[in-house]
C-alpha cells in the first residue's frame, strides 16, 4: 500500500481505536468517541493539505 490517503486513513483508524478504548469505558461511548476522532483526523488532514496548497515548498 503506497497511497498517502490510504495510509492517512489507516493511521487515523489505529490511533482513534487506541484513544477511544483508552479514554472511554462503555462500548457505545468508545464507538462514538472513536468515530469523532477518526473523522477529525481525516477531515483535519485534508483541510490542512488544502490550506498548504498555495505554498510551493
Amino acid at each position: 500500500m503506497r497511497s498517502h490517503f490510504a495510509l492517512l486513513v489507516l493511521f487515523s483508524a489505529f490511533v482513534s481505536i487506541v484513544f477511544a478504548v483508552l479514554m472511554r469505558d462503555e462500548v457505545k461511548a468508545q464507538a462514538a468517541f472513536g468515530a469523532r476522532l477518526f473523522g477529525a483526523f481525516v477531515v483535519g488532514a485534508i483541510v490542512a493539505g488544502w490550506l498548504m496548497l498555495p505554498f510551493p515548498w
Binding site: M1, F11, F14, V15, V18, L22
Partner: peptide, 19 residues
Amino acid sequence: SYEHGNTFIIVAGLLNLLV
C-alpha cells in the same frame, strides 16, 4: 512511504507507553 512507516512505528511505541 518511508516517512509514513517511521510515523507508524514511532506512534505505535508512544501509544503503548501511554497504555
